[in-house]
């Protein structure tokens, strides 16, 4: 009988701690599949974020090293420069990369560090209980914006990926989502491409993934997937934000 589906070899046999309907487990699986397909498992090093996904090391069977909150890009820079033959990825949430870690992330992209970043955007601080993040939508209720986010008080949602695209050393940046099968397939293609940018030594690559957080959005998983389409993608449109892979050159060259 032909086997058409199996657990990726790089997913450890542990039960995910993620909430029902959370996007992290889908994204973990995609990363495991791609690392296996591109034969990167034995040279891969991943820097997980502070947040729910810090426990990614319980699920991904590759070398993993925690960074202080937001500092994944700095740690990844050190790893990649010390071990240029290894494959280095960071896995970060929006609170991690778009708030406390903005500085080191922008500068890593600007330096064209040969690392790949998975940026999981769920528009809230998930692990700490759903506080407003820089990516929270205007009008969105969170525990710290109980009447909804207001631009004049809380600022506007931050377009982190667009900021990273301005940095001259970034080569490929795409925004995708994991709220339906079609988007999951697109996400897999995007991560694969981002990883190939690093393999080819072109520079910094990043995939922003809009990911449902039904628990903190206080919705059913199905409604959370719909909310991504109806609201999140209006502010964070799914698209290739920057792609210099055809030229084989960074802006800076």
């Amino acid at each position: 009988m032909k086997q058409v589906f199996k657990k990726p070899r790089l997913i450890k046999p542990n039960t995910f701690h993620y909430c029902p309907g959370c996007g992290h487990s889908i994204i973990h699986r995609l990363i495991a599949e791609i690392l296996e397909e591109l034969d990167l498992a034995e040279i891969a090093i991943c820097v997980p974020p502070a947040g729910c996904a810090v426990l990614a090391y319980n699920y991904l069977d590759i070398d993993m090293g925690e960074a202080a909150h937001g500092r994944a890009a700095a740690v990844a820079t050190g790893l990649k420069r010390a071990l240029p033959d290894k494959f280095v990825i960071t896995y970060q949430g929006d609170g991690d990369i778009a708030a406390i870690g903005t500085a080191e992330s922008i500068h890593a992209a600007n330096r064209g560090e040969q690392v790949s970043t998975i940026f999981v955007n769920n528009a809230v601080y998930g692990m700490t209980g759903g506080q407003m993040a820089p990516t929270t939508l205007l009008g969105q209720n969170t525990t710290t914006t109980p009447g909804g986010r207001v631009a004049s008080i809380h600022g506007n949602p931050l377009d982190l990926s667009e900021m990273m695209a301005i940095a001259k050393g970034s080569v490929y940046i795409e925004r995708t989502a994991v709220n339906n099968a079609k988007n999951i397939i697109k996400t897999k293609k995007a991560i694969t491409k981002a990883f190939k940018v690093q393999i080819d030594g072109l520079g910094f690559s990043m995939v922003e993934i809009l990911s449902p957080c039904p628990t903190n959005w206080k919705m059913s998983p199905i409604d959370a997937c719909k909310w991504v389409d109806e609201y999140m993608t209006k502010i964070f449109p799914l698209k290739v934000i920057k792609d210099l892979t055809d030229t084989g050159k960074k802006d800076a060259d």
Binding site: I45, D63, M64, G65
Partner: peptide, 16 residues
């Protein structure tokens, strides 16, 4: 030290 889990089990560096 991290360096890719080649020929050995994967390693985790953590304080949590």
């Amino acid at each position: 030290a991290l360096g890719g889990a080649s020929g050995r089990p994967s390693r985790i560096i953590r304080s949590l």
